[in-house]
């Protein structure tokens, strides 16, 4: 566990001690704020619960964008600069390396989500939503973002440079986002399959509305687990190439 925490702490420090981390964070917050203002806070009167639902939908999309942008560095940058040797020649296992990197991504996601909290706080002060609803919504966002970070971690683990990692992570994440559209045009059994694989819609909606959805938790945790496992396997395979 100390090895995982060691890697996570260093990578998180690298995010916050370099311009890149702050650029991503600022850009994500700016986009989130603008979209919230444009689509959630409309000029027409709305229920505060509806505004909150829209906030979680918008922030979910932005969190995925931030996850893809921040995770492309995790392994690909270390490979480009040669510092991957430090991890590969250390006694730490590939599982520890992957979990450490993933945890650093989660810490960044946590920071981003914490900085967005002023928006639902305003809705709570001016409307009638509870702290519990907001908490459940953030749980959903965290689960969604963690799945995005796992996808980015895997893409970074299999890529030689950051740009390729970014493209792969964006393509895979976009696929999961667009699954709900595919489910509308396909027939059974693919209809159900794609509907189940969709990041938004079925899995995130209950959280947006303040309901804890066990199926959603299982889905996001499973996606995260699967991509972290793939990342670990790809690192192990590199030793045998």
């Amino acid at each position: 566990m100390s090895g995982i925490w060691l890697i996570a702490r260093r990578d998180f420090s690298a995010f916050v001690n370099t311009l890149w981390g702050w650029v991503i964070l600022s850009l994500a917050l700016l986009i989130d704020g603008l979209l919230f203002n444009a689509f959630a806070l409309t000029s027409t009167a709305r229920y505060s619960a509806e505004v909150l639902t829209d906030f979680f939908l918008i922030t979910g999309g932005v969190a995925l964008f931030a996850a893809v942008a921040i995770t492309m560095r995790l392994f690909a940058e270390e490979r480009q600069t040669g510092t991957i040797v430090l991890l590969e020649s250390s006694p730490l296992s590939e599982v520890q390396s992957v979990l450490g990197k993933y945890l650093s991504g989660l810490m960044f996601l946590g920071l981003f989500l914490a900085l967005t909290s002023f928006m639902p706080a305003m809705v709570m002060v001016n409307g009638k939503v509870s702290a519990e609803e907001i908490g459940v919504g953030y749980l959903g966002l965290f689960l969604l973002g963690s799945a995005g970070i796992a996808i980015g971690t895997w893409a970074s683990a299999i890529s030689r440079n950051q740009l390729i990692a970014l493209v792969i992570a964006a393509a895979v994440t976009l696929f999961f986002v667009m699954c709900w559209m595919l489910s509308r045009v396909l027939d059974a059994p693919f209809k159900g399959l794609f509907a189940y694989m969709a990041f938004f819609d079925k899995h995130l909606s209950p959280f947006q509305e303040g309901r804890i959805n066990t199926e959603g938790i299982v889905f996001f945790v499973s996606v995260s687990f699967a991509f972290l496992l793939l990342a670990t396997r790809s690192l192990i395979a590199r030793r045998w190439e």
Partner: peptide, 21 residues
Amino acid sequence: PPLYKEMTVREFVLYCGQLKG
């Protein structure tokens, strides 16, 4: 040399020692 340029020499060597267990 595999180095994290944003760290000081001392921080880096301390990190590497811990990384080595």
